[in-house]
């Protein structure tokens, strides 16, 4: 007798993702990121970058639904932006159906993240870490 094929745990359950600005929708399994599930659906309605929360290319705004978020680069998602629903799709784990707006990567801010050091440093001239404007070079 053939063994009955049973779906893996959680199979059959999925969230519906609606990307309103592209007029596309796709399915996301629990535990998958918003971006990874889009790639699995062979869609391209969200731009793919590093897939690690670093580059800002997959920036979206979540208009409705529940989700959790792994740590994202502050260069691309400042705290006030996160509160306004902006997120990087590669770090978003949907917890319900979501309605999102993609193509927010062009809003990337130009900001330098300065290195820091706990140890004191003797400084000659202006300290680059305390001086955001670049000194003119000869």
């Amino acid at each position: 007798m053939r063994e009955k094929l049973t779906p893996a745990t959680g199979a059959g359950q999925y969230f519906q993702i609606m990307v309103v600005n592209r007029g596309e929708k796709y399915r996301c399994r629990p535990g998958q990121s918003l971006l990874a599930s889009m790639e699995l659906a062979n869609s391209s309605c969200i731009n793919i970058g590093c897939r690690g929360g670093g580059c800002g290319v997959c920036k979206v705004r979540i208009l409705s639904g529940e989700y959790s978020c792994k740590r994202m680069s502050k260069t691309h998602i400042a705290e006030d932006q996160a509160e306004a629903g902006f997120a990087l799709a590669c770090r978003v784990m949907p917890l319900s159906d979501l309605t999102v707006e993609s193509d927010h990567c062009s809003e990337r801010p130009h900001r330098n993240t300065q290195f820091y050091s706990d140890s004191p440093a003797t400084t000659v001239g202006n300290n680059p870490s305390n001086n955001k404007s670049q000194r003119k070079f000869k």
Binding site: S117, P120, A121, T122, T123, V124, P128, S129, N131
Partner: peptide
């Protein structure tokens, strides 16, 4: 580097473990 117009910062030995002093420039 200073003559050329770079801002130079002296990082003391040990700021990176087991590394001597470093001269950092922009």
């Amino acid at each position: 580097l200073i003559e050329f117009g770079c801002e130079v910062e002296d990082i003391p030995a040990g700021e990176l473990l087991d590394c001597g002093r470093r001269v950092r420039f922009n």
